[in-house]
Amino acid sequence: MSGRQKQFVGFSVLRLSALVVLLILVVILGDIVVKGAGVISWDFLTQAPTNGMTEGGIFPAVVGTFLVTLITAVIAVPLGIFAAIYLNEYAPKTKVTRLIRLSIRNLAGVPSVVFGLFGVALFVRLFGFGTSLIAAGATLGLLTLPVIITASEEALKTVPNSYREGALALGATKWQAIRTNVLPSALPGILTGVILGLARAAGETAPILFTGVAFYLPFLPDSIFSQFMALPYHLYILATQHHAIEQVRPLAYGTALVLITLVFSMNLFAIILRSYFRRKAVNSR
């Protein structure tokens, strides 16, 4: 084969792979949209399920997912960003630090059901939170931490060292240099990582399964120690656990559509935010 032909074959294989991946995504999304769009209505979004979940809407699940993601954010965002600042700016470059960093990277690969079991042991039982919003939010927080820490650390790494040295050479303390010079430059990257992490948390089922999510609740949670309904788990029930699966299938597709729309809009927001900050950075050059 000539170099030209080899290039053609190689190029075709790469293009085909990309197309296959894209096709799978389109089929899945198309399927969900086509089968789910029919049940989407204002009532579906704002009413509780009725008649043994064969009718009505998904309002409690929407609220539950929103609340549990909020708690996840409150717990994981500050902790994750602070940990990243410590690791990148303060921690001595020793073997121990490298080991810690490696462990955090590995945590990101731990199956979410393992986080769920850990959450039961720690938050539900040891801390005595019971199955609740706070226990589930904290568990999801643990799951999200590695994502936030890793993304924040990468963002901090891209800040030129001259910003730090320049500030220090003017008599700034290390923390002043970080707060006024390093963090503002790293913020876009950090925010993007935070949103992507939270979007993943919002779609998780396993970690909340044993820690707080309820099969069905006729009312909304009234405190952080209440159980709650959530979109991913509601979908799981409608799709596999319901006594009349065929009958509720459209509702399951509708729930899936709402969940996917939610996660996609969070990701979209992250992308918009990133490109906005990038444009701003380019304009100030």
Binding site: P160, S162, Y163, E165, G166, A167, A169, L170, G171, N181, P184, S185, A281, S284
Partner: peptide
């Protein structure tokens, strides 16, 4: 004791 660096490093 202030310092000026080799490459100009204004802050953004």
């Amino acid at each position: 004791v202030g310092m000026v660096f080799q490459k100009p490093n204004p802050f953004p």
